[in-house]
Design a protein around this nucleic acid. Structure first.
Lengths: 256, 256
DNA sequence: CGCGACCTTGAGTAGGCTCAATGCCGGTGG
DNA sequence: CCACCGGCATTGAGCCTACTCAAGGTCGCG
């Protein structure tokens, strides 16, 4: 429905101007100088609109473009030849996708959408201008890469050393706050997490069945609530201590 | 012993000039322009010499310095409050440590040495000059961060979705080639991996006992050889297919 | 000679896995 | 309006990979 709504307008005219980007007004993102804003605007070569369950980037391929998520959710993943899949991270509005292809010929992971998604498109050949002319934005790219590294570090700690119930608890807290930070609508019943339990298992290195049974335990113990895609945390204190999780996202981050 | 040997000279005089850096001549690293080399040299504020099992950086602390490993091995790790530890990655000669502190106040992981180590020291306040004056080096930092992300992606796939024997096999291949690339001495019996089985278990998300039994299986099947710290791969073909591992390090990388 | 660091091995347990059904929608075609 | 189907959640049963506990064994060092 998101797609058909947009399709009613002429595609070229529907492109969001960076200065008017709805994300930029969120408290999550740092303020850009007019010069930076103008440059990012000039870098933006268009928007890419994808349906749910579409492939954004594919492992082994090289991409001519980099993307920023304007709206919707996606996830990064890698697979083994026999089909086992590991979800590496989720991408929410404001997140940058494909930084790897600035630097390497081939992607080492794939990206797939979880919802209909709108992406800002940046041609990778022009990234060099960014490094040459906008030191502040170059620094932001390091910032973005370091944040990604932090998220992966935390994820690695989870999968390597936390039990199933700890893993699920910490991922829930983590996603809840990221969803809030990206401007997800909040209702009394929480935020919308557009994930199936299959996605969760693949993110957590667990089987689908065991993930289901563990989520069940968490809801029965009144720690979380998850019904029809609406998700809420009922007892954050207990959930955090159960998960041994105390990470927080930094207050302000760049939006390129 | 490495330390006492160095300690005989006046400390200031023993500092390696970047132009004469033994790592730079390895085929692993890309050539730097004289200008870049001069800048890196000017950025270098000294060398830090640490014994084995010393702490380089600590989770929760902020570091005034960034480091490049000149010689020796170290590892990055995170811990849970009850002591469970996850090794995130290993650092070999040529690897950059503490990029996070360019960007964040606090480290989210710790770094500890596996052998005596010599580090090049760069003050983090001056990193801004790098972004402003040397776009090429700024790009290299993105390169370095992206490489780290790749390594973490692969590690996450291993821990989340590979079995114990697959995990150990793939880590062995991975470390073997990284050791070679960093200029480790090779003998007929392979390269030296300065790790205990405890380190391996913590890197792989396995228990010590199970790691031991699985390594045993690999040696009994004549796939690898590991005795007294000397390590070799006996049947790379079979090992790779067992591990479902086909990653390679890129040919050339920057050395800052 | 004793001690500490590390490796090895056996025994029993359990957390998480696979297999197999069933239930619950919402959408589609008759 | 209803039957059917596909995608997802749920639950039970039984198994197995990996874990914990507990002993030794080896080697280098003070």
């Amino acid at each position: 429905m998101e797609i058909s709504a947009l399709a009613k307008k002429p595609p070229a005219a529907s492109s969001t101007r960076c200065a008017a980007c709805p994300l930029r007004s969120l408290s999550t993102f740092r303020a850009f100088t007019p010069k930076e804003l103008a440059f990012v605007q000039s870098l933006k070569s268009g928007e890419l609109i994808l349906a749910q369950a579409a492939t954004v980037l594919e492992e082994g391929e090289s991409s001519p473009n980099l993307y920023t998520v304007l709206s919707g959710w996606a996830f990064r993943y890698k697979s083994l030849p026999d089909g086992r899949r590991q979800i590496l991270n989720f991408a929410l509005p404001g997140d940058f996708l494909g930084l790897q292809s600035t630097v390497f010929k081939e992607m080492d992971h794939s990206v797939e959408t979880l919802t209909p998604v709108v992406l800002c498109v940046f041609p990778r050949q022009r990234m060099w201008e960014l490094y040459e002319q906008h030191a502040g934005l170059a620094f932001d790219l390091t910032w973005i890469a370091s944040r990604e590294e932090r998220l992966l570090d935390e994820q690695l700690l989870s999968i390597g050393r936390r039990s199933a119930i700890e893993r699920i608890s910490s991922l829930m807290i983590h996603l809840y706050y990221r969803a809030l930070g990206s401007g997800a609508a909040t209702t009394r019943s929480g935020v919308r997490l557009p994930l199936t339990q299959q996605h969760l298992s693949d993110a957590l290195g667990l089987s689908l069945v065991h993930t289901n049974k563990t989520i069940r335990r968490l809801t029965q113990e009144q720690l979380i609530l998850w019904k029809d895609g609406q998700f809420n945390i009922l007892d954050e204190q207990r959930l955090r201590s159960l998960a041994k999780y105390d990470a927080h996202e930094p207050a302000k981050r760049p939006l390129i």
